[in-house]
């Protein structure tokens, strides 16, 4: 039975717990990259890899049968997957500094200068965000485009695919010979 005294005490405990949970969220647990859920395989051709979990979000690229994907999250009828290498990604030049040159004197690598820098689908700030990069992370530059570097997807860049197009890839156990 809950009497008036206990209710009175709860009144203080509940906000205290909430504040503590809130504090934990921001202080103890840093943003962790999603751990992989499983390896999947695309089961049909012309599958849209999208920037969000809706059929109206922008298409990042089109995947074909038997392509391998790394699923990190399940959300209703969608899987969140780590972006495959050919997916287009852009990072703003003033947020990354060139750290490696190719023999033809073109930028090959860049070091990210700030935390939580957005990686985008198009070279424009209005385009969908595909992922983030943190300070001192190195990204592989493909080419320069205006104020942006076109880069290979970072470890923390993701896209969405409808679940029915992904099969769990057969697990091949490594046999020791």
């Amino acid at each position: 039975m809950i009497d008036a005294y206990r209710i009175n005490r709860l009144k203080h405990i509940i906000p205290a717990v909430l504040i503590f949970a809130f504090w934990l969220q921001f202080n103890i647990c840093p943003a962790q990259p999603d751990p992989p859920l499983f390896q999947g395989e695309v089961n049909a051709d012309n599958i849209n890899l999208r920037s969000d979990s809706s059929v109206t979000s922008e298409v990042i690229s089109i995947l074909n049968k038997n392509e391998k994907v790394e699923v990190v999250l399940e959300l209703y009828e969608w899987y969140k997957i780590r972006l495959p290498k050919p997916a287009p990604c852009y990072i703003k030049k003033n947020l990354a500094e060139c750290s490696g040159m190719s023999p033809e004197n073109k930028c090959k690598n860049a070091r990210v200068l700030k935390n939580k820098v957005n990686i985008r689908l198009h070279p424009a700030e209005s385009s969908p965000i595909l992922g983030v990069a943190d300070k001192n992370e190195t990204v592989n530059v493909i080419k320069e485009k205006g104020d942006w570097y076109k880069i290979e997807p970072t470890q923390n860049s993701f896209g969405w695919i409808n679940k029915i197009f992904i099969n769990k890839a057969p697990v091949r156990d490594k046999k020791v010979r």
Binding site: S54, V55, T56, K163, F165
Partner: peptide, 14 residues
């Protein structure tokens, strides 16, 4: 949003 909802109801992914 309307298109999205209807596609979900129909169960057709895209």
């Amino acid at each position: 949003p309307a298109l999205n909802s209807i596609m979900r109801i129909l169960g057709v992914p895209f």
